[in-house]
Amino acid sequence: TQTTHELTIPNNLIGCIIGRQGANINEIRQMSGAQIKIANPVEGSSGRQVTITGSAASISLAQYLINARLSSE
């Protein structure tokens, strides 16, 4: 079954999640098997909405990979 998880990434950290020309986010997508959508910046908001869709296992793996990127910054 597909589930969806949403999280907010601070604007100053979204770059390390996306990577150069989307390299990091594509790697996270491939490794986790989850669909990951990053919302466009919202004016006045300090973060970007990230939506992860997939199986429970792929979502938790995607979250783990995202958190690993954030903590390495």
Rank of each mutant, 00 (worst) to 15 (best):
T1H: 08
T1E: 14
Q2F: 14
Q2C: 06
T3R: 15
T3M: 15
T3S: 15
T4P: 06
H5P: 02
E6S: 14
E6K: 14
E6L: 10
L7G: 03
I9E: 00
P10H: 04
P10Y: 01
N11F: 10
N12M: 05
N12Y: 11
G15F: 04
G15S: 11
G15E: 10
I17K: 00
I17H: 01
I17N: 00
I18A: 05
I18N: 08
I18P: 01
G19R: 02
G19S: 03
G19P: 04
R20D: 13
Q21I: 01
Q21C: 05
Q21V: 01
A23I: 08
N26I: 08
N26Q: 13
N26T: 11
R29T: 09
R29I: 09
R29N: 13
S32G: 01
S32P: 00
S32C: 07
S32H: 00
G33R: 05
Q35Y: 06
Q35F: 06
I36A: 00
I38E: 02
I38P: 02
A39K: 10
A39C: 11
N40T: 07
P41L: 10
P41G: 09
P41I: 07
V42P: 07
V42G: 08
V42H: 07
V42D: 11
E43W: 07
S45K: 14
S45Y: 11
S45F: 12
R48Q: 06
R48L: 05
Q49Y: 03
Q49T: 11
V50D: 01
V50N: 01
I52Q: 00
I52L: 11
G54T: 01
S55W: 03
S55V: 04
A56W: 06
A56D: 11
A57S: 12
S58F: 08
S58Y: 00
S58K: 05
I59R: 05
I59W: 01
S60E: 15
S60Y: 05
L61A: 12
L61Y: 14
A62N: 01
Q63A: 10
Y64W: 07
Y64E: 15
I66M: 09
N67H: 08
N67M: 08
A68L: 07
R69C: 05
L70P: 03
S71I: 04
S72P: 03
S72D: 09
S72M: 10
S72V: 10
S72W: 04
